[in-house]
């Protein structure tokens, strides 16, 4: 299946490279057109995808999509989904809506609480986790703001 996923963008790159402007009006040599290298890369990607397809027919592929699909059925997928969800909420929603230090503190607090209580692999200790999450959120979020924006004068989002 990876082979098809690779062949498709490979063919798309070949098409886009062939249709890319050749800048004839600027009288550049046809061997130096902007689409030259992308065209070769598109051909290379398509060939590699083809080889991968041929190889998967001959021998069972290690890793590959089977690993990925297996992963989707597990609790691990939920953990990954939660990390991504929190990351997206922080970056796409909170940053810009509230000050960065506040968004950072909220993210850190939520992250620690979720992974130490709901998604904890061992016995959860909500009160202890709450104290830690609050402390790390304040120290981490505030510390990053102070160190970057105040001490090293780096502008934050």
């Amino acid at each position: 299946m990876t082979a098809f996923v690779l062949v498709a963008p490979g063919l798309a790159v070949i098409y886009l490279s062939r249709t890319m402007p050749r800048l004839e009006a600027r009288r550049i040599h046809p061997a130096t057109i902007p689409g030259l290298v992308p065209l070769f890369l598109g051909i290379g990607l398509t060939c590699c995808g083809g080889l991968l397809l041929w190889r998967s027919w001959r021998i069972e592929a290690l890793g590959g999509w089977q690993n990925l699909f297996d992963l989707l059925k597990t609790r691990e997928a939920l953990r990954i989904g939660v990390v991504l969800g929190l990351a997206l909420i922080h970056t796409l929603v909170l940053v810009g809506l509230i000050p960065f230090w506040a968004a950072a503190m909220l993210f850190i607090f939520a992250f620690i609480m979720i992974f130490e209580t709901w998604l904890s692999e061992g016995p959860a200790e909500p009160l202890k986790s709450f104290c830690w999450a609050l402390t790390i959120a304040v120290v981490g979020g505030g510390g990053i703001y102070l160190v970057f924006e105040r001490i090293f004068l780096v502008r934050l989002p």
Partner: peptide
């Protein structure tokens, strides 16, 4: 769990700066 949350914030700062 406690470390990775802070690392993500550093990733955001590192990319933006």
């Amino acid at each position: 769990e406690r470390l990775m949350a802070v690392i993500y914030i550093l990733c955001v700062v590192g990319s933006f700066a």
